[in-house]
Amino acid sequence: MGILNLTPDSFSDGGRLDTPEAALRQAGRMLRQGADLLDLGAQSTRPGAGPMRPEQELERLLPALRAIRSAYPGACLSVDTFEPLVAEVALAEGADWINNVRGANPEAPAAAMARVVAASGCPYVLMHSRGDSRSMDRRASYGDLLEEVRGELLQGTDAALAAGVRPGQILWDPGLGFAKTNDQNLELVRGLSRLRAEGFPLLVGPSRKRFIGAVLQEPRPRARLWGTAAVCALAVAQGVAVLRVHDVGPIAQVVRMAAALA
């Protein structure tokens, strides 16, 4: 899954895709490099990011979504949003998946989003998180990290099913970097197979994240490629289905080799 950030303030590439033309060029590049699907996000979820109205999010999202859908009618397009209105409009405009960073957040009920997804029948990524962009770093307190993440993903799943989402639509994302410390992110990566055992395909997004920078002592997000590659290889070995990354070309090679070894 190639990441297309349409925001001016994302942590590693904000502002790089600030026009539909730039987003379209990057989409084509990622598809040629081996992306199976593209994830378009128009609202930053980096730590400390402020809220945005759904109408503003749509103003950023729709021109790029329309341009990419027109140029690549067969491409699989995901939209990264936690706003039901944005999801509903995006699906009507040709999006295929919804990726909800608050889908398994016990403090952010997602029933309205689940009803949109249920009506469309599209794949639905439920990500584990706590709090919001401004408070999540203070919510990284766990007794048993893997068990609590698993339990909260199951709660989010039960809520989605109650709203009419079918089990086969659901993917789980353990939420690397969302309400987790650096050490907790490492523990979560080591335990991905435990989450996979619940039966839902896993999507994992380690790309360029702070915990990789902490291990490598690398403050520059774009210089964390090989740390990202190491996480992706271990994720594939544990049965992860989708890797959400910025650097599609090299990571596509890592994924193919790791899959052959696994």
Rank of each mutant, 00 (worst) to 15 (best):
D9E: 13
D9W: 11
S10R: 00
F11V: 01
G15W: 12
G15V: 00
P20Y: 09
R25C: 07
A27V: 12
M30H: 15
R32W: 13
G34Y: 11
L38P: 02
L38K: 11
A42F: 09
Q43N: 04
T45L: 06
A67N: 04
S70F: 09
Y72M: 02
P73E: 05
L77H: 11
E88Q: 15
W97K: 05
I98V: 15
I98G: 05
I98W: 09
A111S: 06
M113C: 12
L126N: 10
H128S: 13
H128R: 14
S129I: 02
D132S: 03
S135Y: 10
D137F: 02
D137R: 13
S141I: 08
D144E: 13
R150L: 10
E152D: 14
Q155Y: 01
Q155C: 03
A162S: 14
A163N: 10
P167N: 14
G168C: 07
F178K: 00
K180Y: 06
R190D: 14
L192P: 11
R194I: 13
L195C: 10
E198C: 14
F200V: 13
P201L: 03
L202T: 04
K209Q: 03
F211I: 04
V215C: 07
E218N: 03
P221V: 05
L225N: 01
T228E: 06
C232F: 01
R244W: 04
Q253S: 09
Q253V: 08
A258N: 00
A259Q: 09
A262H: 08
